[in-house]
Design a protein around this nucleic acid. Structure first.
Length: 203
DNA sequence: CAAGAGATCATCT
DNA sequence: GATGATCTCTTGA
């Protein structure tokens, strides 16, 4: 299966956010006994489009936390929020241009039993339907911050398995939880697959 | 079902 | 010292 490469992540951020729908997020971990492979189809994303975007962490400038966003597109940006959850983003566009796409929800594909263990629930539709939940299910933490999504030995990457999402079935909406962002809070920069059960919030 | 509160800490002022 | 790109649980209709 072809992995998304640097060329893909150097496109415009909103385009990437849309095109990530239907792609497959793959988490390989060599921890414990034997290799584990966890994966799911990306069904919801949000674009954080650059230094001018007041919802984007990097709009406050380059700091120890946001410097990951200034890397060349194709590395993971993982941060902790509310003291207890992690959010997974893929950095986009060129070096020194801070932008990223937040992966908000996936539909579980492989490793579902492992995800249930990680999440301590049996409910399939409560495993990965939110940014904090999917990090929990896939065992993602700040260890993955600033690691590559495109290098050969990456434990976390995105595949194109040929799933095509028709533009008709892509919904646009305002982003979640960014009410502080002035005129940027209502911009339609959230994308999700219409009628998918694993989307975190619908309008 | 909706609304509200509490959890809990890295980050920046 | 305040706050957040969230989630879960409790309460009450």
């Amino acid at each position: 299966m072809p992995r998304l490469n640097q060329k893909f992540f150097h496109q415009e951020t909103t385009k990437i956010a849309r095109e990530l729908l239907g792609k497959v997020l793959v988490r390989k971990s060599a921890s414990g006994r034997g290799d584990k492979k966890l994966s799911g189809v990306i069904v919801e994303t949000e674009a954080y489009t650059g230094p001018h975007d007041l919802a984007c962490h990097a709009s406050k400038g380059k700091t120890p936390r946001t410097q990951t966003m200034f890397e060349s597109g194709g590395v993971w940006y993982v941060y902790m929020i509310y003291g207890m959850y992690h959010c997974l983003n893929i950095v986009t566009e060129g070096e020194e241009y801070p932008a990223a796409v937040l992966i908000r929800a996936i539909e579980p594909l492989e490793g579902i039993e492992e995800m249930k263990k990680n999440r301590k629930t049996e409910k399939l539709n409560n495993l990965t339907n939110g940014p904090g939940k999917l990090c929990d299910a896939l065992g993602i933490s700040k260890k993955q911050n600033c690691t590559s999504a495109i290098s050969k030995d990456s434990e976390l990457y995105i595949e194109d398995r040929g799933i095509k999402i028709s533009p008709k079935n892509i919904k646009k909406a305002k982003r979640i939880g960014v009410d502080y962002a002035g005129i940027w809070k209502d911009k339609p920069l959230r994308f999700y697959i219409k009628d998918n059960d694993f989307v975190s919030k619908k309008d």
